[in-house]
Design a protein around this nucleic acid. Sequence first.
DNA 1: CTCGACTCATGCGAGATTGCATAGCACGTA
DNA 2: TACGTGCTATGCAATCTCGCATGAGTCGAG
Lengths: 302, 302
Amino acid sequence: MSRDLAATRALLGDWDAVRYFLAVAREGSFSRAARLLGTDQSTVSRRIAALEEALGRKLFERGPRAVVHSSFGAQLVEAALAVERAMLALQDRAHASEVRVSGRVRVALTEGLAQHVVAPRVLPPLLARHPELAIELHTSDAAVDLARHETDIAIRFFRTPRGELVGQRVARLERALLTSHAAKRRLRGVAARDLPWIAYVHPSFVAPERAWLDAIGAPRATLECTSVETQLALVRAGLGVAVAPRSYAAVMPELCVLEVAELPPLPPLEVYVVTRAAIRRVPRVAAVYEALVAGLRALEAG
Amino acid sequence: MSRDLAATRALLGDWDAVRYFLAVAREGSFSRAARLLGTDQSTVSRRIAALEEALGRKLFERGPRAVVHSSFGAQLVEAALAVERAMLALQDRAHASEVRVSGRVRVALTEGLAQHVVAPRVLPPLLARHPELAIELHTSDAAVDLARHETDIAIRFFRTPRGELVGQRVARLERALLTSHAAKRRLRGVAARDLPWIAYVHPSFVAPERAWLDAIGAPRATLECTSVETQLALVRAGLGVAVAPRSYAAVMPELCVLEVAELPPLPPLEVYVVTRAAIRRVPRVAAVYEALVAGLRALEAG
DNA sequence: CTCGACTCATGCGAGATTGCATAGCACGTA
DNA sequence: TACGTGCTATGCAATCTCGCATGAGTCGAG
């Protein structure tokens, strides 16, 4: 009796429990959920246990490798997601009336853009004008979820589907063959298919450059890596040639363009800046957004 | 900087804060909100302060008599209500798969029905069959909000608008003139308009009985009260005659029916049992609902 | 004016919650 | 088989939060 009385109170009485439930449901493990929530696994374990106690039923089946929702838990996921959506909307609403350019803005982008464009060119003037901004650059390779508020602004290389996201193309970067100065001298006159290619391969999909290399008949395995930064490091070390935006040669002095005649056209790299419509006009976000757009547009110019 | 970093985390990081915010927004005072939340005023004060700190703006203007949302707070109320709706839906979802007739069921009803019908007739057999039920009888005069989950089942005297509520009429109680045995002897032969009427007046609207009394030309101020219980107590004390369900004479031995010829017909009292559709089939609720329906139907019969 | 009723803010001690460290367990690999 | 890695559950100490009690303030009635 008192257990069930506690039940209703516990659910109504601790809305935060839903956040824990959802994190575990998403991550499939107390430990990973704890990392996501920025807390300890023991806390997650105890709070889920408390929630189960309150509901009188198990939400997750504990396995040695992961936890999985019980059928009961599965029924609640959808409703919990609805709570989260309402919560995120509330958060947007809270930010909507901010007036000062102050506070945290998270930007998701690649290592290359972060190190060679945003850090040296965009941030100094932006922070000078708005010293209360706190910029977080997230260069994780994992796709960050803009819609789920995992970041505020994203720089992407693909067109964004319309919806609650807004954005624009800020640059169409012509690609060229980049190499080191030493290698350039060494490789003068070598046929395209015989160049020591250093290719970037994406872990999950085939990058357009790879298709282009196939088209010109370049062999598969010269040097391949899954990180653009490593790719350029290999190039800087004089180990070969890579397909990359031509303007990288301008921002990285160790690199230069290798001109090779009669090659099929390289598709340009399109750069998009994207954010959520709900926060696009928040001063804090707008300032960063516009600085990014301007900085990346300049990249295209030269 | 760290303040605004804390900001986002605090809102996303403590969903329970919304519950406090909403309670204060509804009640217009930290103290009343604390009573609503079943906690202390100091806790509400501190948690609202923490939330404001996190958001970097004041949510409420503190006045000596009450607090009132700032314009910022007002903007958030709607979004917070959406969170609450999602939360209530989640709760329904959690109860939907209960299988045992066990736990708390709240019933909102009048004092009269609670004392003279539900307590003596409905609950004994119900609790005998389902000993794990925990029934809460709420006899507050204030209208309880079924839709906001303030109660599980309500017994009302008016038809319920369709929507998320379901219910049925369980009795149409013929009304009669009730009085005490002593008064009955004394009042034999007195004309209707000259009887010592004891009227029930609702604080906010005109009860149908009052209109009927006007129709027969009864004077306004004999004895009036705002509680049916008090009204019947006055009748039991031999102070007069009241319009009440005829069957009350059967359940209260001190009362008897005073037959007076040639009176306009009294509108019957219609009794409805109402609950929310989402919990109607939850075993715990269904058991109580059906017991109430049966018990109140029997009231009509005799 | 003075009092009483009511509000919110805050100091303080009890108690609940947290994070760390550990134990126990299952699985895949050498 | 033995080991390493990942997981969850739990004991324990430090910390944080809560509720009580109090103080300061405002409003309205007598």
